[in-house]
Every structure is written in structure tokens, then in C-alpha cells.
Design a protein around this nucleic acid. Structure first.
Lengths: 355, 355
DNA sequence: CTGTTAGCGCTTTCAT
DNA sequence: ATGAAAGCGCTAACAG
């Protein structure tokens, strides 16, 4: 009883080594390869039921777990994916990440996260080494910035990869959301109420989602006969605040405002509040980025809810398909998308543009 | 010119195999072990400078990257850590994760994220297999719930691990924040302004941080001669909203309110707004969870800012120390912590508890 | 100074 | 129905 903290029964002093295939093989009195076959459920090979039982029992008893490293080395498969995300605070990434993590787990993969600093963005190819070094089987690239040209990143030519929530330079590897659909939901809603002038406040135009929303806004406003003003600003509270400040100083606001990120929504709301611009009395507001907190603001904010988790899951599926050698084409996730009405949208004021 | 997409020069049709140590060895005309030595910068062994040069040049030319799998198999080190986090929306995890990711990268580790569903929490030992299978060298356990008893999780006895932002059942493996310090910052601030009654709205008491904040509130209120009311509710907007609703129905509110999570802050503010309780006129409000958006609400909310990123970094350091066999003791991160004054706190109303 | 050998833990033909 | 042997890519002990 003077022994220190005995773990189980025959615990040899010192930390017990992890149990290997050969350990259970020699315990049962068979060869390691036999154990391997049994544990991998080889159906082709007919094993004596009794042997099978003994092996299974022993493995279970000793809590055997296969060494993923050794396995991966043999199979040229790590069972890991790397998700490269921009280092921003926006909750959009949390949901995207969650959708991806869940689906990856379902499909037997683990996910490593790499965060890319926004100040010092690297080209996607900078992450290719993770696959080359056999740390992962493929790359989910959610770095936000559009790259300069359309030349495919050579460093990724032999690396399974998928661009998530942005388009990449090479065709057929994009998994994105239907940003145009989201914009249409917003515009049709306000146009239907009689608004004729629209303002979009969004992030830097180098961000691909922003670019696509802006383009869709211009296009659809033209189609509907609405005037469109588009302002790019920092995707922060301060950015949204400053944008409204500047616009107010220059003249009356458009009557319908769409905002790209929730941080900007906070800033926009604060600026409108400061300037005593009534929402939805004088201007209507729609967030293109859904979050539950929008329901609890002094002006509950209507938003467009996008399928972030589905996007993450679809990206994982697409990447695994590429790892498995199957080709694949661009994917656009459009469902489920909906307008969450919360009261920040109303008809335009009698004298349009009144602020 | 009819060939399809030639990559570089001597690209043999089909995807080029990854370059191995032996490839560059045979190219240079030396043995693989020599290459290994050179590339690992063996100082003890004196290598002929010319050989070194040739090897380095060849490796660079062919973009050689060591196979992390093979290396890990030999070294019994994967160079990966697993971070187990609860699956919640709160931005606290984003910052914690970021601090951990950054520090891990600095120290040459990659990080895998596992999200634990809040509805179906598993014991921390359920993640031990990741180390046993050699998928990671250690575990950062940020699962929020306190476990039942103080019995150390046997499944983790041989697994390097550290509990992050919560205390674990085994001693000496905790890396937590100074929640008591945060609570004191809040209480001293409001007590200094003359408040005598305090309300804490926080999450489920099974969450360790909540438990510690509640205990510290009781203790410090007693020391200061303040009355303390503590309400546990869902860590959501709806939870905060409902808590205030119920309290208002029962009578006047304490004059100083602390709130555990930002989601609850949104709910609390909404409920106070609905009930026309002036902030900070009738009650003062402090968020124990800092976020920039708090500055842009209709009532800018004062908060206590905690060192989340530092916590993540410290946890990584502590875990690596344990992986390296060094012992370690519990760590409490208290700096930098500060009160961010934003205007939701004022002196108590003349008739205390007036609502 | 550099090559040989063995082996990390597992899987997979090929034998028997 | 099971064993033997080779090898994934790399490194470390030991020769020479």
C-alpha cells in the first residue's frame, strides 16, 4: 500500500507505453498482420471466428487505438484538412468553421485551423506546404482577398484545394454563397415598399464577397430602376459609423440602406441615432449579415440570413471529392436563405431623402 | 502546343511525386542520412562545406519539404495540439483561439480544433484518443462544464493536457483568468459611486467561469457590505432578457448590474429599454465580457476587458511544457485587465431601487 | 567526414 | 486461415 498511485492492476511503474498492434498480437499468439486484418474488418479474408473473437476481446481490453501516423504514412492519407481563415472578429467565420468541422467529423476527417492576418495576407499558395509536408490532405481556403490576376496559383497545382466563400484564380474550385440572391432579397423587399434610392455600405472592394454584392447591387438596381450608391469602408463599427457621417454631411441619404457586416450595422445605427435619423421612419435598414443580437437592438434590424454552416459543409464535401481524385465544379449555395423581418424596414418617407 | 497545361519544364505527364530525402540524396550523390544531417543543421557533425552547399542548393531547387508524418513517427512527436472548445457563438472563444493559434505557430505547432456540442458534453477524457492515436501531442481543454467530482479523469492520466479557462479535476493543470479580479473591478467601481445593492446575471452555474464569478461576487459584496442577488440564466440574448423581465415583475432592481456574457447584455439592455428603466439613471450596467460593439449601442456599455488572447497563449506554453516533460502548476492570468468606461455606469438614483 | 543499418507502427502482397 | 517480409520517409546509433 506504499506504492504511489497505482493506476489499474499490473501497471508497471512509470508511464505505460501506448499499446501497439504487435502487443495485442503477441498477447493473443498470432501475427500482427492477422490482428490488422481483423481490426480492419477484412471481409475477403475468411478468419476463424474464434481467433477473431480473441483478438477483438484483447484489443478492447487493452484499449487499443491504431497509430494514425503510421497508418497515414502507409496510406499517403493524413485524414486531416486545413482550413485557412482570415483573422477577423466577425461571427460569420464561427458558423462557417462550425459547419465545416461538423461535416469533416462526419466524414472521418479532423480539421486544422490556420488564421491569416488581415494586415499581411499571403497568397493561398503559401499554405500548400501543409499538404506537401503531409500535414493535411487538402486545403479549405477562406482567405478573403481576391488575388491580383486570374493566373492559377502554381504552388497549388498538385494540392487538393477549394476556395470557400470567395472565388479563386483557377476555375472549378469555388464554393460560394449566392450573394446576388441575398442582394435581390434585400432590393426586392425595399423596392416593393416603394423605395427608389438605395445605399450599400460594405467592406473593402478587394474582398470577394463584397465585390460580388456590390456588382449585384448595381445590376439589380439598374434592372429595377433604382438609384444605387455604394460605399466601401472598414468592416468595423467605426467604418460603418464614419460612412454614414460622411454621407450625411454631403446631403440626404438614400431611403434604403443595406449593410454588409454586423459590425458595420452597429456603427451605422449609432451614426443614424446620433443624427436623429429615424429608422425605419426616414430610412430603412437591412443587414446582409444575420445575427441574433440584431433582434435586441433599440431598432430591431431586419436581415438576410445566409446558409453559412451549409457552405462550410459543402466546402468540405467538395474538398474531399478532390482529394479522392474526383473532379468537381464550382458550387453555389443558395438554400436556405431568407429575409428575417424585424422592423427596421418600412415604406419610404413622403418626401424621399428627407433626413 | 496541344499539350494540356504544362506545369514547368520536365514535368513528367501525370502529377509529379513529392520530392523525398532520397531523391535529393541520389541527385547530389550522397547518402540520405547525410542530407538529413545537413538539412537539420547538425552542428556536432562537421560536414564538408562543399557537400553542404550542393545539398542545400538541390533541396532549395526542388522545393524539398520534409514529410511531417515520417518525422513524427520517428520522434514520437506530431507537432500538433488539439484545442477542444464548446460550440457556442460567444466571441470570447474567437480571441482565446486566436491567442492560442498564434503562440502555437510561434512555437512550431499546428492546432486542430474540436468543437464540443453544448447539448451533449463529453468528459474531457473522451478526447484522450487524439493523443493516443498520435494525432496530437497534447490537449487544450476549454470545455466549459465543471465535471461532477474531483476524481482525475483516468483516461487523461498519460495524456499531456491543460484545462483552459476552467478548472479541471486534477490539480496543477489549470490555466484560468482572474475572474475574481474582474468581479472586484466591477464591484469596487460601483461601490465607489455609492451603490449598495448588486445584481449579477450570468450563465449556468455548471460553467466554471460562471461559478467563480458568482462566488467572488458573494464574497466581495459581503466584504464591502453590499447586498448581492445572483441570477443564472441562459447565456443568450433571450436569457438576459427573461432574467430582467422576471426580476422586474418581482420588485425593484438592485441599482448595479453585472452581466456575464455579451449576448446576455443585449437581452438585458432590451428588457430595461422595454420597461423604461433608465441606464445609467435608474440602474448602472457593466458587462463582464468586452466587445467593441458595446461602444455603439444606444447606451454605450462599460465593461471589464479580460486578457483572452494572453490566456490562450499561456495555455499553449503550459501545455508544451507538459509535453516536454516539465511539470507545471496552475496559472492565473490577470494582466492586462481593465475597466472600459463607456457611460452605462453612474451614481445610484436618490431613492435606491427606483425603477 | 560520410555511409550502413535498423526501426518508428502499420498494411499489404505473396507464400504456405 | 494465417505467417513472412517488405516498405511508407525519415533519423539516430554505430561504423569506418
Amino acid at each position: 500500500m506504499t506504492e504511489r498511485a497505482p493506476g489499474r492492476q499490473h501497471e508497471p511503474a512509470g508511464k505505460r507505453r501506448v499499446v501497439r498492434l504487435v502487443d495485442i498480437a503477441s498477447a493473443v499468439g498470432v501475427h500482427a498482420s492477422t490482428v490488422s486484418r481483423v481490426l480492419n474488418g477484412e471481409v475477403g479474408h475468411s478468419l476463424r471466428p474464434e481467433t477473431v473473437e480473441r483478438i477483438l476481446a484483447e484489443a478492447r481490453a487493452r484499449g487499443y487505438r491504431p497509430n494514425a501516423l503510421a497508418r497515414a504514412l502507409r496510406h499517403h492519407r493524413t485524414g486531416a484538412l486545413t482550413f485557412v481563415v482570415p483573422m477577423v472578429r466577425n461571427p460569420i467565420w464561427v458558423r462557417l468553421q462550425r459547419g465545416a468541422l461538423l461535416r469533416a467529423a462526419e466524414r472521418g476527417y479532423v480539421v486544422m485551423i490556420m488564421e491569416e492576418p488581415m494586415e499581411d495576407p499571403k497568397p493561398p499558395g503559401a499554405y500548400g506546404y501543409l499538404v506537401t509536408e503531409s500535414r493535411a490532405d487538402g486545403l479549405l481556403l477562406a482567405t478573403a482577398l481576391r488575388t491580383g490576376g486570374p493566373e492559377p496559383d502554381e504552388a497549388l497545382s498538385a494540392v487538393p484545394h477549394v476556395y470557400v466563400n470567395r472565388r479563386g484564380p483557377d476555375q472549378g474550385n469555388d464554393v460560394v454563397m449566392d450573394e446576388a440572391g441575398a442582394v435581390r432579397l434585400f432590393l426586392d423587399h425595399v423596392a416593393g415598399l416603394g423605395h427608389r434610392s438605395v445605399l450599400l455600405i460594405d467592406g473593402r472592394r478587394e474582398v470577394d464577397t463584397v465585390y460580388r454584392r456590390a456588382a449585384a447591387t448595381r445590376r439589380h438596381c439598374a434592372a429595377l430602376g433604382l438609384t444605387a450608391v455604394i460605399r466601401h469602408t472598414d468592416a468595423t463599427e467605426a467604418g460603418g459609423f464614419a460612412a454614414i457621417r460622411r454621407l450625411l454631411a454631403a446631403g440626404p441619404l438614400p431611403t434604403a440602406i443595406g449593410v454588409g457586416s454586423i459590425e458595420q450595422v452597429f456603427g451605422v445605427l449609432a451614426a443614424l441615432r446620433d443624427a436623429r435619423v429615424a429608422v425605419p421612419g426616414a430610412v430603412s435598414l437591412v443587414s446582409l449579415d444575420e445575427d441574433e443580437s440584431l433582434a435586441y437592438l433599440d431598432v430591431p434590424v431586419t436581415s438576410v440570413s445566409m446558409p453559412l454552416a451549409e457552405l462550410g459543409a459543402a466546402a468540405v464535401d467538395a474538398l474531399i471529392a478532390r482529394i479522392d481524385g474526383a473532379g468537381g465544379s464550382d458550387v453555389v449555395i443558395g438554400e436556405p436563405m431568407s429575409l428575417v423581418s424585424r422592423g427596421s424596414v418600412g415604406p419610404p418617407p413622403a418626401e424621399p431623402g428627407l433626413s
